[in-house]
Amino acid sequence: MGFEVRQLRLVAAIGREGNLSRAASALGVSQPAVSCQLSRLEKQLGYRLFERHDSGVIATAMGEALLRRVDSVLPLMDDLLSDIDQRAMINAGPSVLRVGAVCSAIAGRIGGLVAGAVQGGTVSVQIDDCVLRLIDMVGDRRLDLAAIKEYPGYEHPLPPDVRVTAFMADPTAVLLPEHHPLADRSLVELADLRDESWVLHPVDSSRFHEYLFASCAALGFRPSVSHHCTNEQASLQVVRNGAISLSQAGSPALAPGVVCRLLAGNALSRKHALAWRVDSPLAPAASTLISELRSAYWHEARRSPVFADWARDPQSWELSESR
């Protein structure tokens, strides 16, 4: 298998700190996020890199071998990526600003907001639902900033010199067949979905599946996922025929025979955040962009029949969490 730069940085931080909590602090992310990333990498490799102990972690023989090479490889990778970035900037011209965004209610507006904030230059926008890829591209200077989404307690490790500010949270809604017994409620409890058949996106790097299954486990059940689907319209057809799914503000319009209801108690809420490097040309505009992105989100949310009532009380959902 091939390694990603973020995985090498993760291993280097754990080896350097000898403790998952300290490694998490160095990477600017939660300890559970580091633990999960390490477990996932070890599963991909097929062997353990670190032995866990009460006082911290100790590298295995395979871990030691990898650490020796990581210390040599990372500086070379940083130099290579910096050189590629400089050449790309020369070819593109100094006035091109490169922005990334996950699919969300504000993805279509971020390019215009960036152009307005800096008042000049051309903005190139890459929309990509892989948060890890966007974070890595910010860290490698292939993007000047990115609008991302994360889940509380399941944040991703950050490359050096990358800052993230979560500026708001939003609720999750459940999609139901129109004649479902829960369809007449305005709010649906997550626990009431324990016996349903679910349709979800395939497992990816967003960590949403971990978040979902942990939230359901806390309520004493495990979702029964009958379908994995990457196409939104196909998912709606499955829901119309008896399954349930999940949605957020800005999702595609519903199909006939499908209704959308908010989950009660902030269940499965997510965070919208802005990521940038400290030396990004857009770093001075970050606070302005955060304010503009909040306003853009509320404008889009109020256009949704399901989210409009919720969006009338924005203060309770606005955040200012930086790492």
Rank of each mutant, 00 (worst) to 15 (best):
Q86A: 15
Q86R: 15
R87A: 10
M89H: 15
M89D: 15
N91P: 05
A92R: 12
A92P: 01
G93C: 04
G93F: 07
P94F: 05
L97C: 05
R98V: 07
G100R: 08
V102D: 02
C103L: 15
A107K: 06
A107I: 08
A107Q: 13
A107C: 11
G108Y: 06
G108M: 07
I110P: 03
G111T: 04
G112M: 00
L113A: 04
L113K: 02
V114T: 01
G116M: 05
G116V: 08
V118W: 03
V118S: 00
Q119C: 09
G120P: 00
G120C: 01
G120Q: 01
G120D: 04
G121I: 03
V123K: 00
V123M: 00
S124Y: 11
V125L: 08
I127Y: 04
D128R: 08
D129L: 04
C130W: 09
D136I: 12
D136N: 12
R141Y: 12
R141E: 00
R141L: 07
R141C: 08
R142F: 13
D144R: 08
L145D: 06
A147C: 09
K149A: 14
P152D: 07
Y154A: 09
P159T: 13
P160H: 05
D161A: 14
V162C: 02
R163S: 14
F167T: 09
F167R: 02
M168N: 10
T172R: 02
L176G: 07
L176F: 09
P177D: 03
E178C: 01
H180K: 02
P181I: 02
D184C: 11
V188F: 03
R194C: 06
E196H: 08
W198V: 02
W198F: 15
W198E: 05
W198R: 07
V199P: 02
L200F: 06
D204V: 03
D204M: 05
D204Q: 02
R207E: 12
R207D: 06
R207M: 14
R207W: 12
F208D: 06
H209I: 10
A214D: 15
A214F: 10
A217N: 08
A218L: 12
F221S: 00
F221Y: 14
S224A: 14
S224Y: 14
H227N: 10
C229A: 10
